[in-house]
């Protein structure tokens, strides 16, 4: 039932009716998880491993589109955004990267690793009070990932990481929602709600959930194990060694 190479791709909704129909032999892997959970560190370690295994890798990340990133940063610096304009800006950023980065890379047979995907918009918009059905329709142009790895953490374990990392940020603490005047309390409330929402989405969409409280190396091995499993299923090739080339678990 699995075609070779790559599984059949699926649009989430109506997709992009105007683009020329082309085969997408690459693999789309999304890494989801809340702010400060360690997504980028893990992605940085995945790339060299996959490249040593012979896979070409392309990265794409939330709000990094050349068309929108500046606008989004400017808008976040001001006080003009509503939940709706916020959501639509994210959707435009996503669409720009989908058409200019993700689809071309998939056509060329790359593994695309997406740092956050549409599920982040689903979770955030719901917490911010936007109509969840509307959010999902807006993202109807999205391609469904082949694999979603969800870095799961509880808010108690998240807090020290964020404080020791880059600190609590205005937006990631949900201060715009006026949940309270105290940054810490607001962070705790906002992130708990986000995590609840991610967990709900995880069961709805069948994410593979990994325990993000694990030490970096162990978490990396977990992620590699799941990716190797997916790739062997999708390509019909023997499984990659998750502890193979460049594995951070090797000590010598």
């Amino acid at each position: 039932m699995v075609s070779h190479p790559g599984r059949a791709k699926t649009w989430y909704g109506h997709g992009l009716p105007y683009i020329a129909k082309k085969r997408l032999p690459g693999h789309l892997i999304a890494i989801e998880g809340t702010d400060g959970v360690g997504r980028s560190a893990q992605i940085q370690l995945l790339r060299p491993w996959l490249e040593l295994e012979g896979y070409a890798v392309s990265n794409t990340g939330w709000t990094r589109s050349p068309l929108l990133s500046e606008t989004i940063n400017e808008a976040k610096a001001g006080h003009q955004l509503t939940v709706t304009t916020f959501s639509l800006l994210y959707a435009a950023d996503f669409a720009d990267r989908l058409e200019h980065e993700i689809l071309p890379a998939l056509q060329a047979g790359f593994i695309v690793i997406a740092d956050r995907y549409m599920y982040t918009a689903f979770a955030r918009n719901r917490v911010m009070g936007a109509d969840p059905h509307w959010t999902r329709e807006v993202f109807g142009m999205a391609l469904v990932p082949d694999l979603v790895l969800y870095l799961d953490i509880d808010v108690e374990s998240l807090i020290p990481r964020v404080i020791m990392g880059k600190g609590m940020d205005y937006w990631e603490s949900g201060m715009h929602l006026a949940l309270g005047t105290d940054l810490f309390d607001s962070f705790e409330r906002y992130q708990s709600r986000l995590i609840d929402e991610y967990r709900r989405l995880s069961s709805e969409f069948g994410f593979i959930s990994v325990d993000a409280r694990l030490p970096i190396e162990e978490l990396q091995s977990e992620l590699r194990k799941h990716i190797a499993e997916y790739l062997s299923g999708a390509t019909g090739k023997p499984r990659l060694d998750p502890a193979g080339n460049g594995a951070p678990t090797r000590k010598e």
Partner: peptide, 21 residues
């Protein structure tokens, strides 16, 4: 189980409309 179209891209069977009220 929507079969893949000729570009190998089908539409999700639990896409946004399935959540419609």
């Amino acid at each position: 189980a929507e079969p893949a179209s000729d570009d190998g891209v089908a539409r999700s069977s639990h896409g946004p409309e399935s959540a419609a009220g």
